[in-house]
Amino acid sequence: MPRRSYDQYCALARALDTVGDRWTLLIVRELLGGARRYTDLHADLPGVSTDMLASRLKDMEREGLVSRRRLAPPGAAFVYDLTARGRALLPALTALADWGAPALDEKRPTDAVRAHWFALPLVTRLGRHFAEGVDVIGVALDEGEFHVVLGTDDEDGPRYADGPAERPDIRLRMDTATCADIARDRLTLEQGIASGRIEATEPGAGDGARRRKSTATA
């Protein structure tokens, strides 16, 4: 079935022809964190029906935003990956997250939350506040962990992934309210660390981790 089009000779209209359908950009958000199985996507997109998710993934494959591949044994499951065209949406999603961040006031009782959903607004803020020598940053919330790779020496640029980093340069632990305040620019990383709302540690020799002095800039 052909997809609907705005039929306008306009770059924005062409973009919306491709990514303007409900759930499409949220699927991109999930896949920006790395390859995911269909069941993983469904679990982290609460509210989407199985039929809708399958339909959107087919549309996105046809538009060249995602590819599907089978993992090598013993996994042998199919996973979805963003193509280079799909990954190029990161700046657009980051801008939309910045625009939507002021709406993160009180969490509603019906709101679902996943830790890695905060990665988009944090990517630029972490890059802005941490000095050289900090490239991989682990972030732990009550709801789970994700990590950000600033990509200073990586042609792919900044990116993030669900779960803890294997060898982070620094680990940040905070509650969801603090993370939301950072996303809304009500709190800087430096202020959060100085006030104790953010615990910053780096891997250390011997007994695990030691507290890190703030490398954030004003």
Rank of each mutant, 00 (worst) to 15 (best):
E143Y: 09
A140T: 08
V139M: 03
F130P: 02
P74Q: 12
D44G: 12
R128N: 10
E106L: 08
A112G: 11
L172S: 13
M60I: 06
P164Q: 01
T39L: 12
A72R: 13
G86T: 13
A84I: 06
Y160W: 10
G208V: 05
R167L: 14
V66G: 02
L31R: 07
S49L: 00
T18R: 15
M52L: 07
R85H: 03
V136W: 00
L12N: 08
R37T: 13
L104R: 13
A165H: 04
R171L: 13
A115I: 04
D207M: 07
M1F: 03
A72D: 14
Y38N: 03
H129G: 12
I27A: 10
A35E: 11
R85F: 00
F118R: 12
G144P: 06
G192K: 08
G33Q: 04
R197S: 15
Y38W: 11
P2C: 10
L65D: 11
G34R: 02
Q8C: 01
E132N: 01
L189A: 04
R69S: 15
F146S: 10
L12E: 12
R85Q: 13
C179G: 09
L57A: 13
T215P: 00
V134H: 07
A77I: 08
G151K: 03
A115L: 11
L93W: 02
R37A: 14
R56D: 02
D153M: 08
L41P: 04
V48C: 05
A72L: 09
R85S: 10
R69A: 15
D175V: 06
A54C: 09
V28M: 03
L65A: 06
C179I: 05
V79W: 04
R159I: 09
A205K: 11
L104D: 15
V123G: 03
K213D: 10
A209H: 10
D17R: 08
M60K: 04
E132G: 09
A84K: 15
R197F: 07
I182P: 07
M60S: 03
R69I: 05
Y9K: 12
R22G: 01
G127R: 03
C10R: 12
R70K: 08
D40N: 09
R4L: 09
L25F: 00
L65E: 10
L89C: 02
A200K: 00
V79D: 01
R69F: 12
A140D: 10
A101G: 04
A72I: 08
P2V: 09
Q8R: 14
I198Y: 12
V113E: 11
H116E: 11
D185E: 12
Y80Q: 10
D17I: 02
L141S: 07
Q191S: 07
R186V: 06
A13V: 02
A92N: 05
T188R: 05
A103T: 13
V113K: 06
F118E: 14
D44T: 15
F146H: 07
C179K: 02
